[in-house]
Design a binder for these strands. Structure first.
Lengths: 164, 164
DNA sequence: CGGTATATGGTATAGTATAACATATCAAGC
DNA sequence: GCTTGATATGTTATACTATACCATATACCG
């Protein structure tokens, strides 16, 4: 695991290095890293939480970068399809990738109390899904692996409910 | 794995035994297995595919069992919260449980071609999510594990597109 | 049989996502 | 530099998914 947002870290560094990685990748692959796409990634990098498409749209709208849902969805589709962001199925929401460049099979830990999400990089060939697929002769193309629960900080203060 | 819907099996048996298991469990736990709940489970058992809440509502409506979305969602919530059905996050849809009674951490294999879904029962303590959670001091309460790809039958006939 | 919890029926609305079409911009070759 | 084809943006309208809320009915228990 590279960055653990459940604990203290250089957060300004998350944003700037995330943007730099994305610029480099887009240049290398001949992709257009347009202002809207860049800004959406920046918004996602600004939080270690998953943001809904409409949360992002609200920001874009306030900044005059686009007012209609397709603007946000298109930018998110671009980021997700090039591995710069991930969709969290359980939350119908999106989060910046924390492992850009590495080929990975991401898994996510989602804290129900503080809402933060950590991306854990895992071995694509390992795990229960791969074993079950082997047994059934099933060819995996994409996996969704998300755990909900409490991060260590929230468990300390809160065994059941959800404060902020 | 108990039943593999990707291959031939006694499908009438899926339905009748699924209903019987549910009756038994509801009786044992003092739950009301009402007509709507029973019918929704039966509809789900009739397919090894995930059905959307509105697909189910359509059937209920045609049969005079309820016409509004909350009717379907309430029955589905009941079934899911008692382990008689599962929600497939990736599809925003629902499927009957194929392992009723066993305490389990289900994982799903979803064929993008024939749309069938198989439930694989796995060891809750194993896998990449559990390892990542241990590393981070995270307490898992629920997991989502879904793989998308091609089942063996569909891979044979179709390497890329989706026929039926 | 009266009271409390649970289930049903319904209206209205919130939240998530995409189809379809028009316009603009980019990137490359001539 | 201009044409051309591909890519990106802007917008309208609508489809799909889900829940809050209120009223009524039924079930279960003392």
């Amino acid at each position: 695991m590279t960055i653990d947002p459940f604990h203290a870290h250089d957060h300004a560094g998350c944003i700037s290095s995330g943007l730099k990685m994305a610029e480099r990748q887009c240049a290398a692959e001949g992709l257009q890293f347009t202002p809207v796409r860049r800004r959406v990634l920046e918004i996602l990098l600004g939080e270690h939480k998953a943001l809904g498409a409409y949360d992002i749209l609200e920001v874009l709208r306030a900044e005059g970068l686009g007012a209609q849902p397709p603007v946000a969805y298109r930018a998110l589709d671009f980021l997700v399809s090039h591995g710069l962001a991930h969709r969290i199925e359980r939350l119908n929401a999106f989060i910046a990738c924390m492992h850009t460049g590495q080929s990975h099979a991401p898994a996510f830990l989602i804290c129900r109390s503080c809402k933060r999400v950590v991306e854990a990089d895992t071995d694509p060939g390992a795990g229960e899904l791969a074993r079950a697929a082997d047994d059934a002769g099933f060819t995996i193309e994409r996996t969704v692996r998300e755990a909900l629960g409490l991060c260590s900080g929230c468990r300390a203060g809160d065994a059941a409910g959800a404060p902020a």
